[in-house]
Amino acid sequence: MADLAQWFTGLPFSLAMRRIAWLFPLLQTVHILAIGMMLSSVIMVSLRLWGVSRTQTIAARGHRYLPWIWTSLVVLTVTGVALAVGNPRTLRDPALQVKLWMMVPAIAATLILAVAMRGEALWEKNARARGMAGLAATATLILWLGVTLAGRGRWMANLIG
């Protein structure tokens, strides 16, 4: 990570990010808005899998929100990498490393939901499968909320030591 930070610092883009004052808050704003679209899409999917809302088929719900989840993830990755290049010190931040590691199970859980939401017929009849789906949705939402919070968790490094 230290080597990566060093390499980032020398890149022309990194220099531009540090010179052009408004670029940083602009990218942060886009990043925050994309987190909003990601979390709301996960919540809307979860509401269906929890059975809070049954007005749409599970497949239709997935069809509506999963593309927004994946698009948000792409926007978040692009703006996130750009922000890290613009401020390479952040790579040494333990909270960022926690966040990146937490993204692995979060993406895996989202992929499992995405695949499972296609097998509709199986779900509607099987109460146990429905229960599992609800749990998977809860886990996915908690993981993405954790990723969101860790993104702003630098202060906790002082707390830990």
């Binding site: 679209m37 979390l39 709301s40 899409s41 919540i43 969101t148 702003r152």
Partner: peptide, 9 residues
């Protein structure tokens, strides 16, 4: 910030 992302989304 986490709360405002949910509000916006």
């Amino acid at each position: 910030i986490a709360a405002i992302t949910v509000v916006f989304g």
